[in-house]
Design a protein around this nucleic acid. Structure first.
Lengths: 347, 347
DNA sequence: AAGGCTTAAGTTACCCGTAACGTAAAATGG
DNA sequence: CCATTTTACGTTACGGGTAACTTAAGCCTT
């Protein structure tokens, strides 16, 4: 406990009754003064506020929420992991925006598994959040039941979901993969590699890959996939995933990575082996990480405004909670970044 | 609300009374069954659990906490910003560890200001968290008052604090700056630059700089500082901060950056100007970002296990909450990484 | 078969704040 | 100056769960 004395002080939270008693008024009068509701004299106001300051009274929101007079100011936010910069930015956008409305994020890291998400949902729902923001559109059946039963607003982010549980904001990952596939084939690439991580369940990266393959194969090209098992989508798996891919498919002309971090790993592998980019091999990432802004060579990638995505999700949540009309789906869009890590015209 | 019907369903949360009534028992019996407390027959247990499942009952933790029977499972966690990978990792460590104990993080992004932190503390304390984990050791006087009055455990992380409010875990930033200063001067560098961001209030980066200057000046060297105003400590400020520094101090032999992200920006600036590292100029960062693992040239830096720092903070919090003896201060240490972006012996 | 013990319940009170309602005194109006 | 309204409070009840206590029935035991 926070004190410098030898023995722990007991939980001496100051309650409204104590303030009221000290000020010689009823709880109700004290409550009215504190909320500035009106219906009290100036003399009483001063007297009550004096004791509030003196006792260091902080209102107990739990009591208010519990009594059902107001909904809580908690918004549960599930994020796969924070090792991925992209999700950290999304969370930053969410929390900052929620903060301006006086709401707080209650975090849940799901490690990309539906089971973790389900456990978290059960726990977080028991503390009566005003709403939930979930990453991804795939949830376990039990999660779906709980979400529906809870009756609270839910925003699904990241994957755009045309038939969301409630609301959805994100981008169409299939389309973004498709666009990248079309772009690379338009430059004449035919033997294309993909380096990513593998997942038990479908997710946004899977959809990008699906869209990518469809475009490449539709243009007469072929995609060789290298999925790193049991790994997070960061630099090092990108490095050795590239090594493995190139060992298995020597004629690869260009590689599309699950994200920019993996692409940087791939770039470094190429540099270490003396492969020139884009002369010997093309490299494309996804997500447009901030570090790209200072690279001497612009990484071919796909830009998504992660911060804006988070903010939008928070705004939709707040809109719903204040009974404003809110669109069910918001596509925040993406932008393909041609970059200079792929050749710049058909071969 | 989560339904496909036209009109919003009313908040139909199922309460314990409803379960009890449906099962034909008292609230108390239902409560005992649900908590597995004992004191009921098997027949009753089955009957109650059937109705729990059927009605989709989820206990309302708020009620339990509010009644004062248990403390909440919320831990308030304040973080300066998530744009800095380092803090994202710390948060990841905290939340994962808290999760294993059934606790949740309630996030607060303070944007490096004490005022934001104070506002957040006031808000989060009103929802009766079991404890708080705060980044940094500097808090506003009002914050200090509130923390002391709250009587809940507080862990201050990041800066090691020999006389913490309650508990502290982190590293000694002054020492880590000092070690870097001593290392660079031992290699013969004398005219050294520093590139960082400026802050209203003292923080860990300030202490690193102080330690650094002390070591460099103690060894007869000089430090020229370039503090970028109004900027977050990321890649691009590192890039143009380097440009500004080198314009102002042409004889700079080596630059120490506030963190690795800024150092990467500096490296890119050098590359863009044809400056060889470490032949023409030395570069040192701080924090040892994951991306360093795939760079062809190891960045001179200082390694801190951010994930472990977060986990340790969560462990100390949990220890305190379960009345185990917990050390007041934990130094998780740092490790200087010589790297190859500075010359490797005295000039 | 009476008394004591165990088991399986039920009852009451409480946590803290606020809505709804009640009331006495002061202010206003005709 | 009395009737009406307004102001400034106070009182009661409630929400969802649990601790503490009470009660009723079942089970031994001698």
């Amino acid at each position: 406990m926070v004190n410098n004395m030898d023995k722990p002080i007991k939980n001496n939270k100051v309650s409204l009754s104590q303030v009221a008693r000290a000020a010689g008024v009823s709880k109700m009068t004290a409550s009215r003064v504190i909320r500035g509701e009106g219906g009290y004299s100036e003399k009483t106001r001063v007297k009550v506020m004096q004791h509030v300051d003196q006792l260091g009274y902080l209102p107990n929101r739990l009591a208010t929420v519990f009594a059902g007079d107001q909904s809580s100011t908690f918004i549960g936010v599930s994020i796969p992991d924070l090792g991925n910069e992209v999700f950290a930015q999304v969370l930053e956008g969410i929390d900052r925006k929620l903060g301006t409305f006086g709401y707080q994020s209650v975090l849940g890291l799901t490690q990309h598994t539906q089971q973790e998400e389900e456990n978290w949902i059960r726990t977080v729902l028991s503390s009566q959040p005003a709403g939930l923001i979930l990453t991804g559109r795939y949830h376990s059946p039990r999660s779906m039941d709980m979400l529906r039963n809870s009756g609270i607003p839910v925003v699904e982010i990241w994957d755009l979901n045309s038939s969301p549980l409630d609301m959805s904001v994100g981008i169409n990952h299939f389309d973004s993969g498709f666009d990248m596939g079309r772009y690379l084939t338009s430059l004449g690439y035919q033997n294309i590699g993909y380096v990513g991580t593998s997942h038990d369940t479908a997710n946004a990266a899977t959809e990008r890959l699906n869209g990518f393959c469809k475009a490449v194969e539709g243009a007469g090209g072929a995609v060789v996939k290298q999925l790193c098992l049991h790994d997070t989508a960061t630099y090092y798996p990108g490095f050795y995933g590239t090594e493995q891919l190139l060992a298995a498919a020597r004629d690869t002309e260009c590689i599309f990575f699950q994200n920019d971090a993996m692409a940087f790993g791939g770039l470094q592998y190429c540099a270490s082996k003396g492969l020139s980019v884009p002369e010997d091999i093309g490299i494309a990432g996804w997500g447009d990480l901030p570090i790209a802004s200072v690279m001497n060579r612009r990484l071919t990638s796909c830009h998504v405004s992660h911060l804006k995505l988070g903010q939008k999700a928070a705004e939709m949540m707040m809109g719903r909670l204040t009974d404003e009309p809110v669109p069910t789906c918001t596509d925040i869009g993406f932008r393909l970044i041609p970059g200079s890590t792929v050749r710049n015209s058909g071969a």
